[in-house]
Design a protein around this nucleic acid. Sequence first.
DNA 1: TTAATCACCTGAGGGC
DNA 2: TGCCCTCAGGTGATTA
Length: 272
Amino acid sequence: MPELPEVETCRAGIAPHISGKAFQRIIIREPRLRWPVPLQIAELLPGLTLHRVDRRGKYLILHTEPGCLLLHLGMSGNLRITSQEQPLAKHDHIDFVFNDGTVLRFNDQRRFGAVLWTTEPLATHALLNKLGPEPLSAEFNGEYLYQQARKRGIAVKTFIMNSHIVVGVGNIYANEALFMAGIHPLRAANQLSQAECETLAISIKTILEQAIKQGGTTLRDFLNAQGKPGYFQQKLQVYSHAAEPCPKCGQPIEQIKIAQRSSFFCARCQLQ
DNA sequence: TTAATCACCTGAGGGC
DNA sequence: TGCCCTCAGGTGATTA
């Protein structure tokens, strides 16, 4: 399940293989993703050069001269570098074939992902213009988090998973960051002190940086551009460890639902 | 403006 | 063995 570290791992994995190359052919086998894949990209893209691959939150942005492809991996999506000779796997929905034969293959079992085309400035794009800051940027810090939290009475876990507050923090890393910060996931955001917001911002940055170094987390679906899993799962302290002893105090990890998402915490280490 | 809920989708796993 | 149900989760849309 791709969160920011998985998307960044994916971006770093595919960019060297496709940047500077020209699209030769686009093969769309299944256009029914989160939003219908614009079929016109099969005619628009051939001949265009892919200048670079960026990331904004969990969106991958493939830049060409007239416009950009926006890719989202959703819940189960992955991109891998391959060739046309390689047999198709189940749920291989789209092939981006480049002029040297390299193929960027989009696979998405649950089809929550997206492939979109835009020629408008990214700063005004409806999917991007309301996104919060990047968690690893200087703009995202304790003071920013505190100012945003003061206006919200929702559970802090739901708060930090809101991409309009900060991008890229999904369920796994929200659980892990709150555990590291010693903050109960049900605490109201507007009840956090400035010091707690400082600690939480640092925890989010630390968790995400560690996960990127490990190549992301593989629970079920995630594979990197070479089809290999990430290794951060082995570092998870509370996520998916219900009833197991807390790594800090030994108390059993508890599991509850918050906003329909499984949430894991230590009731002794994380103060409510 | 904020918060809560729904919908989308597929496959694994459990119960019968 | 096969059927049915539940669960997993990112995020935009809808509703209150």
